[in-house]
Each structure stands twice: as C-alpha cells, then as structure tokens.
Write a protein that binds this DNA or RNA. Structure first.
Lengths: 202, 202, 202, 202
DNA sequence: GATGAATGAGTTTTCATTCAT
DNA sequence: CATGAATGAAAACTCATTCAT
C-alpha cells in the first residue's frame, strides 16, 4: 500500500506544481490571459497532462481561487484566535496589516479574488462564483465571532453590515493603491481601523 | 466649416449609438460575452463600421467606461452643487442614494465598472488604469470641494483618504447586495453616511 | 434589394460549395474522418468561414445527409409517379436499379446514410439520428402509396413490413457487394424484385 | 512445455477479460465513446497492460467483432445441426428467433456489428472488412449446407443470394425495431421466414 | 463612408500510444 | 510482466481584425 500512498502524495505534489504554475501565469498575465497552454508550458508539462489532474479549466481555476482563499483564511484565523490578549483595535490593525501584506505586489491576485465574485458571467464560471460566495459567507462568520467577542453591546449595526463596511474600506484602499491615486503612500492599518471602528460604534 | 462640424456631430452620434448597443449587449450577455459581432448587430451597423469609429475593441471598452463615468460624475456634481441648503449628512445621504439607484437598475454597469480591469489584456489595462486614475482624481477633487465646504477643521483624515473610505463602503455594500450575502435587505444610505461620517470625524 | 438578393444567392452558393467539399471528404476519408479542418481545406476556405455558413459540425453533417436524402427521394418519387404505365414489378425493378446506381462506387455515402440511423451514440449526433428517422418515415409513406396503387388486396403483410423487407433485401445486397462476398457479381434488380414480391404476396 | 501452455491459457483468459470489459463499456457508453482508458479501468488493468494483449485499439475492436461473430455462429450451428427432425421452415423460425434474441438484449452488439465499419479509420476498415468477409463466407457455407439438406431442387436462386436476402430481411427488421418505425411491434419470426421462403422458392 | 465575408491565431478538450519505473 | 504518468497530435469552435467591393 505504501506504493499507492506514495503515488497519491506525488499526485498531490503535481497538482501543487500545476497550481503554482497557474499562479505564476495569473500573476504575470492576469486572469483574462490564463490559458491551459501557458499553464502547461510554465509547469513544464504537456497540455494533456493538466487534464490528468484537473477535470477542466474551470476546476483548475477554482482550485487556485480556493488555495488563495484558504491561505488568507488561515492567516485571518491565526490572528483572530491567537492567544495574545489584544484589544479589538489592535487585532483589526494586525488583520488589516496582514491583508495588505498578503496582496502586496500581487495586483493580479487581488483582482482575481475580488472579481471572481462579481464578473465572469460566462457560463463556465458559475461554479467559481459559487465558490466565491461561499468564501464570503465563511469570512463573514469568522468576523462575526470576532466582533461578538468584544463590546458586543456597543455596536450600532449588525455584524454583517460591519463586516461589509470593514472589507469595503480595506478593499478600496487596495484598489486605489494598485490602480489609482493612492500609489505613493503606504496604507496605515491604524487609520482604516479607526475609521471603521469609530464609524460603527455607538 | 459647417459641413465639417456637422460631420463631427454625426460621428459623435454614431459613437453614442455604438456605445449604447454595447451596453445593451453587456446587460444581456454579460461582460465576458461582449463581442464586436454582437455589438455591430445590435447597433444595426456592419462590423467593419465599428472600426471606423473605434480603433479597436479596447478603445471601445474604454469609451464606454468613460461615458459611464461621465454620467455618474454629472449626477454627483448635480447633487453637490445644488442650491438647496443641506447639511453634509443630508448631502451624503442623497449622494449615496443616487449611486445606489444608478447601479441598482443596471447591475451590469456595476459589473462593467469593476470588471473592466480583468477582462482585458495587460496592454489594455495600462490605458484603462489611466482612465480610472483620471476619473478617481476628478472624483476626489469634487468630493474635496464638498468636504471643504463643511466643517473642514473637524476631519481626522485627508479628503483623499476620506474619499477612498467613502467609496469603499458604498461599493462593497453594492457587491454584497448584487452578488453576495446582503441580498434581501435594502441598503440604507443613512447607515452608510453614519458609518462614514463618524469614522472620519475627530 | 437586388444587392441583398444577390448576397443571399451567393451565400447559398457558398453553402453548396462547402457541402460539396464535405461530400468529397466523406467520399475519400469516410464518415469517421470528416473534420472541419479537412472540409475547410477542401473548400479552399478558412476553418472560421465554415462557421459563417453552418452553426456547427453537426448541422453541416445533417445538411449533407439531408441533401443526399433529398436527391434519393426525388429519384424515387420520379420513378414512382412517372406517367409510364408499368406493372408494379417493373416499377420495383426500376427503383432497385436506380438505388444500386445511386450508390455505385460510393461506398462511403452508403455507409454514412445507412449508419446515421443506427450508430453515432455520441450526444452530438442525436439530431442526425432524428433526421434519419424522419427520412425513414417519409420513405415509408412514399412506398406505402406505391403499394396501395397496385393489388392492394393481395399482400399478406402490412405496407410497413413490406417496406422493411424490401429495403432490407436491397441494403444487404449492397453491403455484400461493397464489403462482402458478392463482389464480382452484378446485382440483378429483377431477382430482388422477384424475391420480394413473391415473398409478400398471398 | 506445460509452463508455456499455462502462460498461453492465462493470456487467453486475460484477453477475454479485456474484451468483456470493452463490451461493458460499449453497452454503457455507446460505440463512439469506447476508449482504452475506460476499457482498462473496467478490466481493472492498467492502460499499458491492454497493449500487452492487443497490438492496438483496432486489433482489439476486431477481436471483439470476431468473438461476437463466433458466438453467433455457434448458436446458428447448434440450431442447424441439432438432431431434432424439423422442417426447413421450422428451422428458419428457430434461427430467426435466436438472432432476434441474440441482439434484443444487447442492442449495443447490434450497433457494434453494424458500426464497426464506420467508426474506424480507413486502414482499419481493410482489416475489419476481411474479418467481416470471412465471417460472411463461413455463414454462407453453414446456410448452404442447411439449404442443401432441404428441397435443394426447388430454389430459384443460389444459396449465396438466398443467404444475403435472408440476412437482409432480418437485419432491417432489427434496425427498424431498435431505431426506426417498427418500435411497438414484436417481430414474428414466422413472417420473416414466410417472406423469405416464398420469395426464393420456385 | 459602409459592408460583411474571410481570416487565422488562439482556446479548450480528448485519447491512442509510449516508456521509465 | 505490469503500471499509469505523460505525451502530442488531433479535434471543434471563437472572435478581433482586415480588406475587396
């Protein structure tokens, strides 16, 4: 059975290799330019081989999305559930700092992850949309718990609404950093936390 | 000269016809499915004619983007520079209400504005980025004026930062309304104004 | 409007050109080997151009099938409804002779037309199957009328059953001629008519 | 030598396993969808192993064809050479009944037997043609013997021609039953025998 | 100016066959 | 012997762009 196990491990390894290659293509060429051809070339595999590991392009794309999301989720969870005794404010600072880091210099990742939810009305990408919605829901639940831990009686709005505002502020600063007018300046997590927290508190 | 002018006017008219057609295609088929074929058909023009008015598809996309932006900008300006004597809070409420309206009946516009960034080639993104940056700058100037009119000494952050936060909150509520978890509820402009204003005030 | 008409005529002409090219590919390479590439090459057109005239490969195949069928049907009708006063026996002789002629040296047509009904369980070809079934039904009706014209009270079996037997005998002689043991000999229509007619008569 | 013999026996056993698997795939997925992948999976063998037993896919197909033919041939022989003292008519009834049975439960066999001709490359067809011709010749010899046993001086046509007509009638009733217009009705062997016998008798 | 037929490179996907292990 | 990962040559289909008329 050890052979079988090794095989399985190797298979997982290959999948990771392919996803890594796909991420590189994504990073360099953007979502619209990802093609199975390029991924194969980058992974130093034949086109056909990709289909040994991923049913089709959509499934591969979804796995990329999922992987990035899992990575981000893990980081969020790590911060939220860390033992350190921190004020909510400090936690949010850390959280924002991490998110900014996560996307730093990875415009394409940011675009991809934020637009998976929105665009892509091509039939092919329906499942990606579902995946993105699911992630959004999960993220919501995580943040909800965080908010409930602290001053829960002092919020003016629901955790859902707080969460939407919170993420909106972060996202738009990143958009403006990547594409807009906020290029030169460093985004200060403290500012974002402050705007958000004072905005939603009674 | 009059002939030349008339020509020019006709040309602009044709361009608007094409853009309108493109927006209709966008609304019906989604961003990923806009094709020159369909636009031509919808505009009741030949495919070749499209290229008489727009250098290529990307330029056409940019003009659509620009047109939408201009439309939105005009509405923003109208509200801001209206004679009514209103509190800042009331003005923001009106502004947000208008933006929600603007996109509500035209989800695809919203998708388009967000997706213009991914759906196109990298070369294209450069141009679109410029367009978006320009718009952002303009919008900033408009908002700056608004903020300067009121309580200018009570803000904790720069008008640029305020603007980014403001738009981020609005945008993300729209995203979650159209595609995510905020489906059932109506977005209340007052809430968004409140979160924002209290967040950025000293 | 004359321009439009001319255009339409030219379009039909092109369709014919493509079908003719496809028929040549069919004749030379067999059904399993028809590819859009080869048809395009043979028609001296680009691959893309084929799709200006036929929605997809299946539609093109169906038109080939239909065209061949129409040709055959016309020939059958011509014989059946000819003014000549002939005995049923003589009509059937003529009919069989024509069918043998129609397929002579066109193995691939024969194979294609006979197997369209049967095989091709690929999803893509469902419509072709329907087309083939419809043709079979039409052919039935035509033959039914013929049989009803003559000695209708002397048949032991239904016109449907007669028709099936009739076509079966002809088809299998062709099969054996093309692929089997009846290569050297010329198929004598009189023999087929005789076997059939005496077989089904009271 | 005994080892060698055992080896050979095992090899034949494996071949049968593979053919059985292929037939299962055929039944489930249809002729157009048989792939070496699926056969291997169904046979619980590796794809590579298939090539140890069959030179290539075409050879495998031919062996299936051959195997089915042998099976059918055996059943035909059993009926013809059975000790029962039966009239020719009764024998033919039995024969037809058996053939109808043989295919009825296995529509896909019937499809396969008919489709082997189109589904494959031209090169392949040569081989398959040979196989089919050989089978046809054998079948002819078998039927010849049967016909010679009975009333041999009363036939109007050669045993070859009789055979072709006989099989044509049966085949076409099956085609129309499985795919065409003869769906609802049960095929009565007596009718087929009657049509045939009266058709070929002086 | 306007047309729309034609192009051709690009895209995803399939699958028989091979070969290192 | 046996494996199954990998190949690579198809295949169908799309679409921005060009150009003869």
């Amino acid at each position: 059975m050890s052979t079988k196990e090794r095989r399985e491990r190797e298979k997982q390894q290959r999948k990771r290799t392919i996803i890594k290659a796909a991420l590189e293509v994504l990073r360099e060429d953007g979502f619209a330019r990802i093609s199975m051809d390029k991924i194969a070339e980058r992974a130093e595999l034949s086109k056909g081989a990709l289909y040994l590991y991923f049913e089709n392009k959509e499934k591969l794309i979804i796995e990329i999305f999922w992987m990035l999301m899992e990575k981000l989720k893990k980081k969020i969870k790590d911060i939220i559930s860390s033992d350190e005794k921190l004020e909510l404010e400090e936690k949010l600072n850390k959280l924002i700092g991490m998110v900014l880091d996560f996307y730093s210099n990875e415009v394409e990742f940011f675009v991809f992850m934020n637009n998976a939810l929105i665009g892509l009305s091509s039939d092919m990408m329906q499942e990606l949309k579902k995946t993105a919605v699911n992630f959004s829901i999960e993220l919501n639940e995580i943040m909800e718990k965080l908010f409930e831990e602290y001053n829960q009686d002092r919020y003016k709005y629901s955790t859902l609404e707080m969460n939407i505002a919170f993420r909106g502020i972060i996202k738009n600063f990143l958009v403006e950093k990547f594409f807009g007018v906020y290029k030169q300046e460093k985004i200060r997590p403290e500012m974002l936390t402050d705007i958000f927290l004072r905005g939603v508190m009674k």
